[in-house]
Design a binder for these strands. Sequence first.
DNA 1: AATTATTTGTCCGTATGTATG
DNA 2: CCATACATACGGACAAATAAT
Lengths: 240, 240
Amino acid sequence: MKSRSEQLVDELGRKIVTGEFVQGDILPKVEDLSEIHQVSRTVVREALKGLSTLGLVKSNQRSGTVVLPRSEWRWWNIDVLTWVLEDEKNRDFLLHLTEVRLGLEPTAVALAATRATDEDRMKIKDAFTRMEQSLGDPKAWAVADYDFHNVLLSASYNDLIINTIKTLQKALIISREKTLLAAIEDKDSPYDSPTTEALERHRAIYEAVMNRDEVLAHQKTSELILRVKRILEKIYTRDL
Amino acid sequence: MKSRSEQLVDELGRKIVTGEFVQGDILPKVEDLSEIHQVSRTVVREALKGLSTLGLVKSNQRSGTVVLPRSEWRWWNIDVLTWVLEDEKNRDFLLHLTEVRLGLEPTAVALAATRATDEDRMKIKDAFTRMEQSLGDPKAWAVADYDFHNVLLSASYNDLIINTIKTLQKALIISREKTLLAAIEDKDSPYDSPTTEALERHRAIYEAVMNRDEVLAHQKTSELILRVKRILEKIYTRDL
DNA sequence: AATTATTTGTCCGTATGTATG
DNA sequence: CCATACATACGGACAAATAAT
């Protein structure tokens, strides 16, 4: 169960992200918010502080609490990420997220190709073998695919990149439960499904990493994600 | 002036990041912290809440506040970033940051090559022209260089990438004031200085963007940052 | 398996400080 | 200089979770 102030952060945060409040708008003053939402001023104050740390607003004495431009938002906060993803008006944000993946994942895999220990290599091999064996089984495939990407990621030994990609994945999972992303996935499947083609794409990455070929590993991972990006681009232009 | 609770967050946060408290450690209980630091329990509670949102600790009723593993930290928070950068024990973190740049900046420039408007292109041209004209003037060069990278970044029209790179730059600037990063910069200058070689590297990027050649733009930006990465790697291995 | 003790969580009202139109 | 609105800090009361008995 969420606290009252967390609920308020959620409520107001969504209104900002969805554009109900826009840059430069002044939120109702503490006392009014307290009245409107039937909570104490302490709760309101905590909520405003929460919104501040998200970079969504800035409280100024006398002039009130003002909504900040998008450039100030803490985009890597999981709540901000999911609110944006869940908002239909920000549909091309999914494309933007994919562009971040396109930057970071090939880099991570290239690092893994040079840094993976013998133990890492065993885990990578294990995950890929399970992918090979689950061509007919979407559920087993999904698990193996997930493991494969994750062991590769860990083997990059770059905490920052690992954390960033994991945050991104988490946001996608959370918002996919609620939004039309699920529909997109069903219709056009930009995500991996157990086809021979997908397997071969992964095999190329797998072999490059095992051969410590960072350039090839980068390239093949890049191709994999670029395919997702192209599908998303097609969907968005088609739906205009 | 920072509030008492912010000071506490800073103090405790640093102790966690530098390893004075490690994963699994239990912080003193609220009442004790209140006594130790001579503040009210409210202030302590706010500080613990702050540390929680940074992902550094998790408070549990009855069993106290426990320090979380590095994988849980909010790495993109500016405070966490600078604490880590300022800690000598994390010296290879600068390398990790550069690897993130290596992933994201070429991607951003490639996007700029396809998305830059006419107005963006004018600004890009202006910044590059100023770089050309300031070959003998380190200060003017620094400004033009900064502008050049920033207009390119904005022209990517990907808020997430823009924000991430800017956060990264900000952290570097803050921590460079305080640490040995300044010394590294002086000795080996992994950053741009006004040489003909640096200018030509930038010209390659400039022309690729102007020609809307996203592949070349990506490659040339990649080479620029890779050069920084190689220098850092050399420094770290030399100093072992 | 039920109870107790401990620790944090939540919310409250109040008091005083501080920036600013 | 005043009125306004937020900022900071305090302490108290009760709720909730859970380790220990």
